[in-house]
Design a protein around this nucleic acid. Structure first.
Lengths: 112, 112
DNA sequence: ATCACGTGTAAGTGCGCTGTTACAGGTGCA
DNA sequence: TGCACCTGTAACAGCGCACTTACACGTGAT
């Protein structure tokens, strides 16, 4: 095995991105098919600036990916879609990921 | 299948509990064996009040469980241990969980 | 009594997340 | 020219999380 999951920091970022009801809805909606920002905002029922913020977080975590395209009538549309992520969370996989945390480890001792 | 994972709300709570470096360390440490609060705080290197807060969140999410015991010398010790959780996160499992979210769904329409 | 160990909680601070409103720019069409 | 779409970002308010310091209470040993 050794499966090499994400690093501890990346995992924390992914979990933080998913630990929000709205972002969970966004991922769920995109799982049904790619969509562009304005339409997605209408479907979910939130403002575009707000959706924009959440999309940034999800994309930064590597859970979704967006690319700008030009529609037939020349409009710039940004389409987002989910990436092929798969996380298995158990006590042991988390313990494995925790080894690669770069965040301040208080137990490391404050350097001297 | 149908595997019946946690509800959307529970899932969000679990992910929120795990999306923190310190709490990830706590789970990792407990995965190596049960421990009591004061000792755990010393091992990880944080204050007891802070650890106490994080333990509350982890326990509320159902990821760890604690029970008070009396040591041989009569001291009250609270031992914590990880529960047997197992979460598989993919776009489709998340979409499934999102269906059971009770948090305000803006798209539902404001009731009238 | 005082110390060393365990438990828990209340109060205060700093900061980041969430969400709003407002603005600025682009295209195609009447 | 004005409207209807699309995109993005800046500015601001509210709130909860993370963390510290301080306190209160219990035991057994010196």
């Amino acid at each position: 095995m050794t499966q090499a999951g994400p690093t501890g920091d990346d995992l924390v970022e992914m979990l933080a991105a998913l630990s929000n009801p709205l972002r969970l809805r966004i991922v769920a909606q995109l799982a049904a098919g790619r969509d562009y920002v304005s339409h997605l905002a209408r479907v979910i029922g939130i403002s575009r600036p707000l959706l924009h913020m959440h999309l940034r977080r999800l994309e930064a975590a590597g859970l979704i990916a967006g690319n700008l395209e030009l529609s037939d009538d020349g409009k710039a549309m940004k389409y987002y879609q989910v990436t092929d992520f798969s996380l298995h969370l158990t006590a042991s996989t988390l313990a494995e990921a925790a080894k690669t945390l770069t965040t301040p480890d208080p137990a490391e001792g404050p350097g001297r």
